[in-house]
Simulated assay, not measured.
Amino acid sequence: MITPENWRKSSYSGGGDGNNCVEIANSPTHIAIRDSKAPFRAALTFPAGAFSTFVEALKGEGRSTRASLAGLDN
């Protein structure tokens, strides 16, 4: 179960108020991600195994893919 105290900010959130990235929460079976600028909006929830596969794929693709996914390639 994902509860309010499960959420933590990404280490890439940056300085200042740290509201420039995502927050993540996990349970034994699922991972949830939400926008740290809008924490009360919907969160994306993935089965834990699928999220791990997604993260590993990002690591393997390099910076250009991560920038594209983050909308930084425009």
Rank of each mutant, 00 (worst) to 15 (best):
M1K: 13
E5G: 10
N6M: 09
W7H: 04
R8F: 07
K9G: 04
K9N: 02
K9R: 10
S10V: 00
S10P: 05
S11P: 03
S11K: 02
Y12T: 06
Y12F: 15
Y12G: 04
G14E: 03
G14V: 06
G18V: 01
N20F: 08
V22F: 00
V22H: 02
E23N: 07
E23P: 08
I24D: 08
A25D: 01
A25K: 01
A25N: 03
N26P: 11
S27Y: 09
P28R: 12
T29K: 12
I31T: 07
I31N: 08
R34M: 00
D35Y: 05
S36R: 00
S36H: 00
K37W: 01
A38L: 11
A38H: 08
R41I: 14
R41K: 15
L44V: 02
T45F: 03
F46E: 07
P47E: 11
A48V: 09
G49L: 12
A50N: 08
A50T: 12
F51S: 06
T53I: 10
V55W: 13
L58D: 13
E61C: 14
R63P: 12
S64P: 09
S64R: 14
S64D: 15
A67L: 06
A67F: 11
G71C: 01
L72V: 00
L72S: 03
D73L: 05
N74S: 15
